[in-house]
């Protein structure tokens, strides 16, 4: 049916090809347009925003909105821009991602290589923890944090993210370690290697790809989180998503759309960067986190 040697069926008439590329490009436009609008708007002056249109190319580029979003825009009562909150998120993400990934690796190792009675039941229990709507744990957690004196602190938020990230990281590592032959572990045991020795010397060196998947997954999840941030943090300790939302919805003074867009891009840059650099692992985490049981 065509001159191509097809391994997937495909249409090859010229009209058909034009039609296909046309649709694909239109859809690509739908996905790209908002990003374009964001970037364009962020480098325009408010004057130009009022006179021009959404997608008109900026006539003069100014980074005033960017510097305002970073250092002097109001996020509620406070008017010091997003910079502080950006670093909050960095400090939040660093320990949570590393601790939850490390614990996930240990859990996955125990669940697959040191099978004990009830391991499957435990794993199913943990899996349900991936799916519950977090609304159902918000209030008890708020009470607990209050009781521990951690309400509204970064430490409290770190604790929450580690606890509810564990289910996912354990899932990643368990599914990865299932495919590593048990003989490897048994052979090391015969050679006298103990529990941790096997983990450090055999399992971890094999785990680089899944570590990358887990780190990227946790990083995007926690960086982008809003629910935990808005409920469990307050004032100075808020993560960037909460600050961005406050900035955009602050109703004092004239609405500056260019500042809003610059702020949104600043909040999006770290995860976008990770996506561009390590897209393959990002997709793998999405599908593994969402589909596999």
């Amino acid at each position: 049916m065509s001159s191509f040697s097809a391994d997937t069926p495909h249409s090859s008439s010229v009209m058909g090809r034009i039609f296909i590329y046309g649709i694909l490009l239109i859809v690509a436009g739908y996905f790209l347009l908002p990003l374009l609008v964001m970037v364009f708007t962020s480098v325009k002056s408010m004057e130009e925003i009022r006179t021009g249109s959404l997608i008109s190319i900026p006539t003069s580029i100014t980074f005033d909105a960017w510097s305002k979003a970073w250092s002097s825009a109001c996020t509620g009562v406070e008017c010091s821009g997003l910079s502080g909150y950006f670093w909050n998120s960095v400090w939040l993400v660093t320990p949570t991602v590393s601790i939850s990934t490390f614990l996930g690796a240990l859990n996955g190792y125990v669940l697959t290589k040191w099978n004990f009675k009830g391991a499957d039941v435990f794993f199913s229990m943990l899996l349900i923890g991936c799916f519950i709507p977090f609304q159902v744990i918000l209030l008890p957690m708020a009470r607990t944090l209050g009781f521990l004196g951690l309400a509204g602190t970064t430490t409290g938020l770190i604790m929450v993210h580690i606890i509810y990230g564990l289910a996912f990281t354990t899932l990643f590592f368990r599914n990865f370690y299932v495919s590593i032959p048990n003989e490897l572990v048994r052979a090391a045991q015969i050679d006298g290697a103990g529990f941790f020795m096997i983990f450090w010397k055999i399992m971890l060196p094999l785990s680089i790809p899944i570590i990358v998947v887990s780190v990227i997954w946790q990083f995007t999840q926690i960086w982008n989180d809003f629910l935990f941030g808005v409920v469990f943090s307050a004032g100075e300790s808020q993560p960037i998503t909460v600050a961005l939302n406050n900035l955009v919805n602050t109703s004092t003074g004239v609405k500056e759309y260019n500042v809003d867009m610059a702020a949104a891009i600043i909040a999006a840059l770290p995860t976008l960067f990770v996506y561009v650099v390590a897209g393959k692992y990002f997709v793998r985490g999405l599908t593994a986190g969402a589909v596999k049981g």
Binding site: F31, L32, T41, N224, L272, V274, V276, G279
Partner: peptide
């Protein structure tokens, strides 16, 4: 094309909401 289709998934819903609120 796949990279373009998937990048919004890397964004926070707050960023998405902010962008569309303006559009």
């Amino acid at each position: 094309l796949r990279t373009i289709y998937l990048y919004p998934m890397a964004l926070s819903f707050i960023v998405t909401g902010t962008a569309w609120k303006w559009i």
